[in-house]
Computed example of a mutant assay.
Amino acid sequence: MEKTTSQKIRLGLFVIIGLLIFILATYLIGDKQKMFGNTVHLATSFNNVNGLQLGNNVRYSGVNVGTVRNIEMIGDTNIRVDMIIDEDIFKHIKKNAVATIGSDGLVGSMVINILPGSGTAALVEPGYEISSLNRIRTDDLLNTFSKTNKNAERLTENLLKITNEINEGEGTVGLLINDMAMAKDLKTTMSYLKTSSQKTSESISNLNRLIASLNNKDNVIGILKDTAVANRMKAIVSNLDKTTVEINKTVGNVNKTILNIKDGKGALNYLSNDPGLVRKIDSTMTNLNEASIRLNEDLEALKHNFLFRGYFRKLEREKLREQRK
């Protein structure tokens, strides 16, 4: 059956549209994989790529800047990853940048994240290998969780054992919880300790006040701290030392005098040991008294004598004038 012209036209349009769609898809995929733009190679190494595949995206500060070009096993714990980076972004990457492997969402494909470097580090050159930060593997996480679960199980068993012992009254804590008498004794002891602490605090406060009052000049310590008073005290002590020396000399002289008296030397010895001398002194004193009495009688007789009467009256008048004045 021969095709009509309209069918041929439709077939041609279908082929052309399909070709355009293929070209557009190829361009979009190539642009996404950085196949048509200017790109630069950059490398890094990991000990585990965690499912990273060729063509996965490379991000710099969260922006897609390239793709994974090649993954090569260098050693049993060293895997080299070659990346192609957009030339416009490549000039911003520093040598202290760090590459990590992450996932694109919860269930997305793996991506390489390049963390920007800090400071004034130099920029990378084409083919430069930046350092990497290895991601914790799932197996390692599971092993860690397994150990954590075992430790948690042991901890739970120990806690149950301790709780049972406490409930049964075993151990110090069990006795404190279940023994009411001990709890009361402990409460009383704590009360005494509290009272003692308060008394101690009061004593310390009083001691602090006493120490602070030592600087006051109204008390003995404060007076002694005064330089002028200290100098006076020093002078008084010096004078006391001198006085003590003089007293010692006087006491020595008195002792010497007493020894002389005991040895029969001096006038006191004669007075105390010679009865005849004492009687003579007593007779002399008696004669002096009698002479004094006779002299008074003679003076009284003179006062009444007409020759001396005027003189004594004159003396009496002068005494009266002086008394009146």
Rank of each mutant, 00 (worst) to 15 (best):
M233T: 11
L240N: 13
L160I: 07
A181W: 09
D179E: 15
Y27A: 07
L302N: 13
K325Y: 01
A267M: 05
G55V: 02
T39L: 00
N48D: 11
Q53Y: 10
K256Y: 14
I221T: 10
G266S: 15
K91S: 05
L133N: 04
I79L: 00
L320Q: 15
S109F: 06
N248R: 04
L24C: 07
I281K: 02
G55L: 03
T200A: 15
K194W: 12
M73N: 08
K3W: 03
L159P: 14
S6V: 14
L214A: 07
G66F: 00
S197L: 13
E290M: 05
V98I: 06
I166D: 08
G171F: 05
L20S: 15
V245P: 00
K94C: 02
P126Y: 01
N287P: 00
R321S: 04
T172Q: 13
N206T: 11
D139Q: 12
I177P: 10
I236P: 01
E290K: 12
E157A: 11
M180A: 11
N215G: 13
G75N: 14
S146W: 10
I258P: 04
F22K: 12
V124F: 00
R294L: 05
I204T: 08
N219R: 10
N134W: 03
V237N: 01
T26D: 05
N158H: 08
G37P: 14
E297T: 14
N253E: 04
E165C: 08
I236L: 03
D140F: 06
I258K: 13
L277C: 09
T200Q: 09
N296K: 15
E300R: 07
K32V: 08
N206L: 11
I29E: 08
K150C: 04
K314H: 11
I281V: 10
L52I: 07
L224N: 11
T163E: 15
E322P: 00
N78V: 11
V237K: 06
T100N: 04
D185Q: 12
K325M: 01
S283Y: 07
L106E: 03
P275R: 05
Y192R: 15
Q323S: 08
S191F: 08
A121S: 15
V107F: 09
S132L: 01
G18Q: 01
I162P: 02
L52H: 03
A25P: 12
R232H: 07
V124R: 00
M1F: 00
L123I: 02
D139W: 06
L160E: 12
N289A: 12
L159I: 14
I21T: 13
D82L: 07
L106W: 03
N248F: 01
T243C: 00
V40H: 00
T286M: 02
